[in-house]
Amino acid sequence: MTHHPKLTSSELAVLWGAYQNSSLIVCTVSYFLKTVEDEEVRSLLKYTSGLAIEHVEILKEIFKEENHPIPMGFTEQDVNLNADRLFTDTFMLFYLSNVGSMGLNSYGISLPSSSRKVIRDYFSKCLSSAIELYNRVTDVMQEKGVYVRSPHIPYPEQVEFVHKQHFLAGWFGNQRPLTSNEINFLFNNLQRNVLGMGMLTGFSQVTNSAKVSKYFTRGAEIAKHHCAVFSKFLDESNILTPMSSDNLPTSSKQAPFSDKLMMYHTAGVQAAGIGFYGMSLATSPRRDLAASYTRLMAEAGEYTEDGANIMIENGWMEQPPTAPNRKDLARG
Rank of each mutant, 00 (worst) to 15 (best):
F91D: 08
S115R: 12
K60P: 04
Q77P: 00
Y107V: 14
F87T: 09
F123C: 06
L59M: 15
F91L: 12
V79D: 00
F91C: 10
N82W: 03
V79A: 02
D84S: 15
N80S: 11
R116I: 05
T75E: 05
S101H: 07
T88I: 01
A83L: 02
P69G: 07
F123K: 02
M102I: 13
R85M: 10
Y122C: 01
D89Q: 03
K117T: 12
Q77M: 07
F63M: 14
T88W: 00
S101Q: 11
Y95F: 14
N82V: 00
N82M: 08
D121I: 04
G108W: 04
K60E: 12
L86F: 07
L104N: 07
P112F: 07
S106L: 15
F123A: 05
G100P: 01
E65H: 11
R120E: 13
A83N: 02
P71T: 09
L104I: 10
I109L: 15
L111C: 06
S114M: 09
V118I: 14
R116A: 05
L111M: 11
T88N: 03
P112V: 07
I119A: 02
N80D: 14
Y107A: 13
S106T: 14
T75W: 10
N105F: 15
K60I: 10
N98P: 00
N67I: 09
S101I: 04
S114P: 06
E76A: 09
L93G: 00
D121F: 05
Y95P: 01
D78T: 07
G108D: 05
L81R: 04
Y122F: 15
F74Y: 10
I109G: 01
R116F: 05
Y95T: 02
Q77T: 11
D84N: 14
Q77S: 12
G73Q: 04
E66L: 09
H68C: 11
Q77V: 06
S114I: 08
I119K: 02
S101A: 14
F87V: 10
F74S: 01
P71G: 09
D89R: 03
G103Q: 02
R85L: 09
L96Y: 04
Y107T: 15
S114C: 10
R116M: 08
N67W: 09
P71Y: 07
Q77E: 14
G103D: 05
S110H: 13
N80G: 03
I62D: 03
N82D: 13
R120C: 13
L93A: 02
E66N: 11
R85K: 15
F91Y: 15
V99N: 04
D78L: 03
N98I: 01
S106P: 00
N67K: 15
K64R: 15
M92Y: 05
D89H: 03
F87A: 04
S113G: 04
N80F: 07
